[in-house]
């Protein structure tokens, strides 16, 4: 589903290279975890996958379902099924969460040549998805992310994901700022979306999340490269021993 080949990317403004020859393949149905120390380029990778213009790809390619997406703008990528749950969800003052969801859903449908969803249909879908994530319907009337607690923001991200039904889900530190109960709810939400035609990339620092969302593969990102890949035991190993050994081994 996703194939990243020898990707090099830099910050457009000052030319600093952040991603330095990154290779990664994620198959349909797979859950891949990306781990790595702070500042290694995990969030940057998620932005580049979703097409943020602050970064320039200088070398390599990103194939999504076999086709390069480098020329697509972010909204086209989104409509084609790439979803990013932000590490820091953005506040949109004055725009009710419900309204935002409706615009997003209908814009994606329009792009794909599908008819707009009727309002009752839409409301029913939102309410169902919200209930599963134990989101109070009152919250949907509030402006998106404005005054939401950390946990509410993360839940709202997963709610959007559930509604938009993307094919490639990228979760950037969705577990940060969640207490254990919220973590379970969010993980259940993600697990419910697991399906043979959908891939999930989970970016996290902690093994804890991976106990609930059990990954098929684990990749260690360091200085803009994947320096080690393995199965879920790699995460346990990192938890016990830290990154130092792996980083040293890669440098050697």
């Amino acid at each position: 589903m996703l194939e990243i080949r020898n990707l090099h990317a830099r910050i457009a403004e000052d030319g600093t290279e952040i991603i330095r020859g990154l290779n990664l393949t994620v198959k349909a149905g797979e859950v891949a975890a990306i781990m790595g120390p702070n500042g290694s380029g995990k969030s940057t990778l998620s932005y580049i996958l979703s097409g943020r213009s602050d970064y320039e790809v200088t070398e390599g390619d990103i194939l999504y379902n076999g086709e390069s997406i480098l020329e697509l703008d972010p909204s086209e990528r989104a409509a084609k099924g790439i979803f990013l749950a932000f590490q820091y969800p953005v506040e949109i003052p004055g725009v009710a969460t419900m309204q935002f969801l409706k615009v997003a859903l209908n814009e994606q449908r329009k792009f794909r040549g599908e008819a707009e969803l009727s309002t009752p249909d839409f409301i029913r879908r939102v309410k169902e998805a919200a209930a599963k994530l134990q989101i109070n319907p009152e919250m949907l009337k509030r402006p998106l992310n404005v005054g939401f607690s950390g946990g509410e923001k993360k839940r709202a991200e997963i709610l959007q994901m559930a509604l938009l039904e993307p094919k490639l889900c990228i979760l950037d530190e969705t577990d940060s700022g969640l207490d254990i109960d919220a973590l379970k709810i969010v993980s259940d939400g993600v697990n419910a979306l697991r399906s043979p035609d959908r891939a999930v990339i989970v970016i996290t620092h902690y093994q804890r999340l991976l106990e609930y969302i059990v990954p098929d593969s684990v990749h260690v990102l360091y200085k803009g490269q994947v320096i080690k890949s393995g199965d879920k035991s790699l995460a346990l190993d990192l938890e016990a021993n830290g990154y130092a050994d792996i980083i040293d081994a890669a440098a050697a």
């Binding site: 972010p74 409509a79 953005v90 004055g94 997003a104």
Partner: peptide, 25 residues
């Protein structure tokens, strides 16, 4: 804000209209 909207599949002009309408609500 703009990138967040784009990432949800809302094209630039619609995103600006949405953000501005929030601003003037």
């Amino acid at each position: 804000q703009l990138f967040y909207c784009l990432q949800r599949g809302i094209p630039t002009e619609a995103a600006i209209a949405l953000i501005v309408n929030g601003f003037v609500k």
